[in-house]
Simulated assay, not measured.
Amino acid sequence: MANSRLLSLPDELQEKVLQHVAAGSISDLAAVKLTCEQLKEVSERPLVYATFNLVNINFPLLARMPATFYAECYRPGNPYAIYLNFVFLAYLIM
């Protein structure tokens, strides 16, 4: 069960905490999502997806990510998703 101190915070602060977790490590965020239903719901908000650092994910894991994950990151303006989309499109043009 998740720490009750974190769960007692307002949703907006929980979201800020999870944004920092997402920026640091995708595996840490995945672990947080497994703790309880409330944190799973908060971790799936667009602003959390906007903070994923996709460049620091190792390539084998990045290659196995579903396309919907990239779309969820790209939609709120994640700069790493925008960068990877540009690189992919530039590769297609070459």
Rank of each mutant, 00 (worst) to 15 (best):
M1V: 14
M1W: 13
A2I: 12
N3Y: 12
N3R: 04
N3F: 14
S4A: 15
R5V: 15
L6W: 12
L7K: 04
L9N: 05
P10K: 09
D11N: 14
D11G: 15
D11K: 13
E12R: 09
E12N: 08
L13E: 02
L13P: 06
Q14T: 06
K16M: 14
L18R: 02
Q19H: 07
Q19G: 12
H20C: 12
H20Y: 13
H20Q: 10
G24M: 09
G24F: 12
S25V: 03
S25E: 05
S25Y: 02
I26W: 11
I26G: 12
I26F: 10
S27L: 13
S27E: 13
S27C: 09
S27M: 11
D28Y: 05
L29E: 07
L29C: 07
L29T: 07
A30L: 12
A30T: 06
A30H: 02
A30I: 08
A31P: 00
V32M: 13
V32F: 07
K33F: 00
K33I: 09
T35N: 00
T35Q: 08
C36Y: 10
E37L: 13
Q38M: 07
Q38R: 14
L39P: 03
L39A: 05
K40N: 15
E41R: 12
E41N: 10
E41M: 08
S43V: 04
S43Q: 04
S43G: 12
E44T: 11
P46V: 05
L47Q: 11
L47F: 04
V48I: 05
V48D: 04
V48W: 04
Y49T: 04
Y49E: 01
Y49G: 03
Y49C: 05
Y49N: 04
A50K: 10
A50N: 10
F52I: 01
F52N: 04
N53R: 09
L54F: 06
V55M: 15
V55E: 14
N56V: 00
N56P: 02
I57K: 06
N58H: 11
N58I: 09
F59K: 07
F59V: 09
P60E: 08
P60D: 07
L61I: 10
L62G: 06
L62A: 11
L62I: 03
A63S: 11
R64G: 02
M65N: 01
A67K: 09
A67V: 12
T68V: 10
T68I: 08
Y70C: 03
A71M: 05
C73Y: 00
C73W: 01
Y74K: 04
Y74N: 03
Y74S: 03
Y74P: 03
R75S: 07
R75W: 01
P76H: 01
P76T: 02
P79G: 05
P79F: 02
Y80R: 00
Y80P: 00
Y80D: 14
A81V: 01
A81P: 08
I82F: 00
I82R: 07
Y83I: 00
L84C: 04
L84D: 02
N85L: 13
V87I: 14
V87P: 00
V87K: 10
F88L: 08
L89C: 09
L89R: 11
L89I: 10
L89S: 07
A90M: 10
A90F: 14
L92R: 14
I93K: 15
I93T: 13
M94Y: 14
